[in-house]
Simulated scan of single mutants.
Amino acid sequence: MDVEELLSRYGPSYAEEAGIKLTDKPGPLYQLLVLTTLLSGRIKADIAVRTARCLFDAGWKTPAKLRDSTWQQRVDVLGRGGYKRYDESTARYLADGAELLHERYKDDLRKLAAEADQDPGKVRGLLEEFPKIGPTGAEIFCREAQAVWPFLRPSFDKKALDAAKKAGLPTDPAKLAARVKPDQAAVLAAALVRYGLDTK
């Protein structure tokens, strides 16, 4: 499968699908962190994306707004999104993550990038300090954030690279990224992941 067909059939980025207008600003970067937290659970990606939209529709697009919500309010919204198996624990994770973001980075993930000296490995390590975000979650965040954080490019995790092999595309991250414009690397990564998950 060529890149154009892949992007057409399996784009856009997960952030865009969740309604996040991703820019290098505190609000959108926080929304990506929320989406990453949801995608890190053992739950289908489409449910995680739908649930993220529900959280944002509830007005919780910033860590301050999320911190103002109650645990029960978060549980209810997570349930509406279909995130029911982990709604109670995730309601806590989201609050704890918003608190950590405030205490450590003053609600601005750009400060995390600065603390990591824009080193991708260090960025991933700092992301793993957030509740529920492990190595896989850190890869998901970087895969999406490379759209606005050029220092993360190219970011293709194992799922994306396995899918690239399946599609007959290069499995070397640099060669794979060269197939698209730099700001499209995140869309390509997301499209590859969806393609890899497509069992049809």
Rank of each mutant, 00 (worst) to 15 (best):
D2I: 04
V3R: 05
E4F: 02
E4D: 08
L6K: 08
L7E: 01
S8T: 11
P12I: 10
P12Q: 08
S13I: 02
A15N: 00
E16Q: 05
A18Y: 01
G19V: 03
I20F: 05
K21G: 06
K21W: 06
P28I: 13
L29W: 09
Q31M: 12
Q31E: 14
Q31I: 08
T37Q: 13
L39W: 04
I43S: 03
A45T: 06
I47H: 00
I47K: 02
R50V: 05
T62F: 06
P63V: 08
K65D: 13
L66R: 11
R67V: 06
T70Y: 02
V77T: 11
V77G: 04
L78S: 02
G79K: 06
G82A: 03
Y83I: 05
K84C: 07
R85Q: 12
R85H: 10
D87R: 15
E88K: 15
E88W: 01
T90S: 08
Y93N: 14
A95M: 12
D96W: 12
L100E: 12
K106I: 02
D107N: 14
D108I: 04
L109S: 01
L109W: 04
K111R: 12
K111E: 10
L112D: 00
A113Y: 06
A114F: 01
E115V: 13
E115G: 06
D119K: 09
P120Q: 03
P120Y: 06
P120E: 04
V123M: 08
E128Q: 15
E129Y: 00
P131K: 10
K132M: 10
A138D: 04
I140P: 00
C142F: 02
C142G: 07
A147C: 01
W149T: 01
F151S: 00
R153K: 07
P154E: 05
P154F: 05
S155K: 00
F156P: 05
A160S: 15
L161G: 13
A163H: 10
K165Q: 13
A167H: 09
G168N: 12
P170S: 10
T171Q: 15
D172F: 12
K175Q: 15
R179N: 03
K181N: 07
Q184Y: 07
A186D: 12
A190D: 14
A190W: 10
L192E: 10
V193H: 00
Y195P: 03
Y195Q: 07
L197E: 14
T199N: 14
T199H: 15
K200S: 15
